[in-house]
Design a protein around this nucleic acid. Sequence first.
DNA 1: GAGAATTCCAACCGCAACGTTGTAGATGGG
DNA 2: CCCATCTACAACGTTGCGGTTGGAATTCTC
Lengths: 202, 202
Amino acid sequence: MAWDTEGTRRRLKEAATVEFAEHGPDGTTMARIAERAGINKERLYKYFGDKQALFETVLTDELKKLAETLGPPPGDFENIGEFVGRNFDYHVAHPHLVRLLLWEGLAGGPVADEAQRSAFYQDKTRAYAAAQRAGILDDDLDPDHLAFMVIGLSAWWVSTPQLARMLTGADDDDATEHARRRASVVRAVQRLARPPGADRAR
Amino acid sequence: MAWDTEGTRRRLKEAATVEFAEHGPDGTTMARIAERAGINKERLYKYFGDKQALFETVLTDELKKLAETLGPPPGDFENIGEFVGRNFDYHVAHPHLVRLLLWEGLAGGPVADEAQRSAFYQDKTRAYAAAQRAGILDDDLDPDHLAFMVIGLSAWWVSTPQLARMLTGADDDDATEHARRRASVVRAVQRLARPPGADRAR
DNA sequence: GAGAATTCCAACCGCAACGTTGTAGATGGG
DNA sequence: CCCATCTACAACGTTGCGGTTGGAATTCTC
């Protein structure tokens, strides 16, 4: 049988994503990743270097997936609510990414792929600023802060699930509660970003 | 010299707070806690049980400190913006608590002191609901979700410092940026919670 | 003031984790 | 067809962790 190096690489990375998202950098063991992938542990070191490098690879990969799934931010921000709603859906369906981000922030180590990501966020900020100048978004908040808070609003539910549970009294996989949360996020973003008077459709 | 059991207990707990907040449950070692406190490791087990119990003790303690420092939520929510601003200041000055909360949520294990905390949050939700009925807060969002998002807005900056840095381009200990962030949080909460037309003081 | 009880500590135990090494099989150019 | 090269793996070495134990020093109790 021919080698399937790309396949083993992919399987290792998928296993690493699950393990890292679940247990974090410190709680994850290289042996468990290899075991989950059904591949020998040593391959991890050959392909990805050490644990830290593997974590960074996994994180940048998941960020890319999000960007590809959601597509570029809508040219106009008229419908920012729905855009963030889709963002929220994504985070609830794949909590991997938010969890990886939180662990990255908590660890305080090097930031994976910092240059690319900074550039991405600066683009985003510029887009927000343009929409504010066009009057589509309110300019009450500075564009970078607005962008940051919008991310927060859609990611916060996944970030502190225990608070969410204690406050709402609902389980994480409750479908009707999910819909209620989504609606709240959409409405909150509209209140935050849209000029007063817009989105009056109650 | 007389025994100072309460003192050693306190020193151990303080050291544990720092270590747990910094490195998380998995990244923290009992030996390092003891070393930081200058006390023998075995005392930790005598006083606090095992690692998990120590973590829960530390977390509930920090939650109590926040509640005592900020005092009860203001009877009326007219000034919810400033209240949340003080909350934000606290989290920036003592990031311990938010970090512990994030780690608790990520670990997914048992929630420390769940009964008390649930009761606390339900009280909070009731207070929000009352303010909504009184017309002080807008009832656009359900009170539990509003409470949850308000917490998120003031804690999100500490939760993903690397995103904050990449978006704002500012260091975490930049004083003018702190003021700017605080103002954004206050304004955002007002937009989120207050009826349209209130807080028009630009 | 003697002995029970408690505080404190150094040393230890079992175990699991990271990362490496030595080797068996597969591949491909000359 | 041969040998350098690459993939893959089992087993290992070392380190460091959570938790325990035996005993010395100190305080309390009667």
